[in-house]
Amino acid sequence: MDFLTSFPQMDEDHLRALKKMIDEAFRGLTRAYGDSIEAFFNPLLHFLIFSEKMMTQTPWPIVLLVIGAIAWVASRSAKIVISTLLILLLIGYFGMWDDTMKTVSMILVCTILSIVLGIPIGVAMAKSRRTQQIINPILDVMQTMPSFVYLIPVVMLLGIGKVPGLIAVIIYAIPPIIRLTNLGIRLVDAEMLEAADAFGSSGWQKLKNVQLPLALPTIMAGINQTIMMALAMVVIASMIGVQGLGQPVLKAISNQYFTLGMFNGLAIVGVAIIFDRVSQAFGKRLQKHLEVIHG
């Protein structure tokens, strides 16, 4: 009966020895290659610092004009532009401008890196069933593992700071763009591919001229989801040194500052609304444009 009521477990001494062996191996890796790993990520740190300085040191009216222009080009909607500017003006009025710009710079860098890494991986998955079978379980783990768990190896390798936070955000946020790039390319009409073959297109030409353009609305949906997930990680990433709106929220949680937490939480929501509305409007415009081109 004892066998049925208590699950059979590894001997405690063996389990302790196994954990100790893994911990010592990881510590040995960080001691041996920690400096090389930090040097590898130095360009990323410089890119992040440059982006942050550009957002925080540029006069706020110029930032507003640039963001408003981007919103107009992407959406062609006066309503979206006006709501974007109003949200940013309210954020500035309540004294959260610098933290918001730091958060926006982090999200921009994260999104750019996610696009650069995610789209090629999604294309590789669409082109090869074997690659898809290998990468899908990795994406499942990335999406389901609690974010606090993969903060541990990142912090042990790189310490506390901007780069570990950025890597943690990317790990959490990149799966949607990979999955939706793969899906978008796989959903391209076979007749379009046959027509491209009939014109003698190479594999690269088919990808560049047919598959990626037709998959763009789906890819844009993936980018939208990546941005939303990156914003969801802002508070958690603040625990390992990422500056921005997450740090005041973390401070509010630790010290029970209700208004500080609410105001900065609402600022995060406002930034999320801006990114969401602008990217969705751009995706819809892109889809209509492609429908007109392809009849």
Rank of each mutant, 00 (worst) to 15 (best):
G118N: 02
G118P: 14
G118D: 09
I119R: 10
I119S: 09
P120A: 10
G122A: 06
G122E: 03
G122L: 04
V123Y: 11
V123P: 09
A124K: 13
A124V: 00
M125Q: 14
M125E: 04
M125A: 03
A126H: 10
K127R: 15
S128I: 01
S128E: 08
R129P: 12
R130L: 15
R130C: 08
T131R: 13
Q133C: 07
Q133W: 12
Q133P: 07
Q133H: 13
I134C: 06
N136S: 15
N136F: 09
N136D: 11
N136E: 13
N136A: 04
I138E: 05
I138Q: 10
I138A: 11
L139R: 02
D140C: 02
V141S: 07
M142A: 14
M145L: 15
P146T: 01
S147P: 10
F148V: 14
V149Q: 01
Y150V: 05
Y150C: 01
Y150H: 01
L151C: 03
P153T: 02
V154R: 03
M156F: 11
L157Q: 02
G159Q: 00
I160Q: 11
K162A: 12
V163D: 05
V163G: 06
P164M: 00
P164T: 01
L166H: 07
L166Y: 07
L166K: 08
L166T: 10
I171S: 04
Y172H: 10
Y172K: 04
A173S: 13
A173R: 07
I174F: 00
I174T: 02
P175C: 05
P175T: 02
P176A: 03
P176D: 01
P176E: 05
P176I: 05
I178L: 06
I178K: 05
